[in-house]
Design a protein around this nucleic acid. Structure first.
Lengths: 136, 136
DNA sequence: CTGACTGCAAACGTTTTGCACGGTA
DNA sequence: TACCGTGCAAAACGTTTGCAGTCAG
């Protein structure tokens, strides 16, 4: 896995302790919302400001390091930009997972039917994860 | 097309002039955000309140008449609930269109890979619509 | 006639902004 | 050293709530 500081530098962002922590949290959790991120940050930086979190998140989005994932029925989460994938949300435990599934066919069909030239797809699936199926 | 008043009654909503207008706007535009809906409502009901719009939209969601569509890079829009479909958003003119595409294959593959039991899918595709391709 | 709906104003939670200070490169 | 990032406080924004008056059924 690429170094956290390098990741920031590659995206024209100065390396600060707060930014390192944000990216480390994203690496660790995969997906995290602002509230949870703030809670985690407070543990290491007791005087960190929510304004700092927002400023950094927005800047990281602008610089192409992370992206917002809008979810049905819940708050947005953020993730490091990586290979295209879709999101699975569990209705029971509310976790979010990535799944790498080929989307070419559906995109091709949608292009044919609509006449659009498609540049990006956002796919989220709601359901029950394997663990929650087992424990119900 | 089903009568607007009937649609409200079927969903246990009293028929009021404001609600009729909201549903008519949804029928006309297909997708509309709160701000635009408020602007349209003001033309016919100069003293309509934003609170009324929000209360009605939330109630219509609770009663299964409409649903929120969260879009990348822009505000949520609302639409009448109909057969499953996906959304196309044009990056140039920002319109939103429905496309009916079979999603069974992608869902089946995602279920296989993830172990989830999937109950609903949300698919949005970004691109350039046919009209904007022609006029660029 | 009764409960539900509306409009208004206030409250609320979230996100953004301006500013003085401190840290990175 | 110069500029960018941080923290704080205030402001802005979108949405929700409580209430009194009105309307649909």
């Amino acid at each position: 896995m690429k170094g956290t500081a390098e990741l920031l530098k590659e995206h024209q962002l100065k390396v600060t302790p707060q930014r390192l922590k944000i990216v480390m949290m994203l690496k660790k959790h995969g997906h995290i919302n602002i509230e949870d991120l703030y809670g985690e940050m407070l543990k290491e930086f007791p005087s960190v400001s929510l304004a700092t979190i927002y400023k950094n998140i927005n800047q990281m989005i602008d610089n192409g390091l992370i992206q917002e994932v809008k979810l049905p029925r819940s708050k947005s989460v953020y993730e490091l930009i990586k290979d295209p994938h879709l999101h699975m949300v569990c209705d029971k435990c509310h976790k979010v997972e990535d799944v790498v599934v080929g989307t070419e066919k559906i995109i091709e069909e949608a292009e044919k039917l609509s006449g659009y030239i498609i540049t990006e797809s956002f796919i989220t699936l709601r359901g029950i994860c394997a663990e929650c199926q087992a424990t119900q």
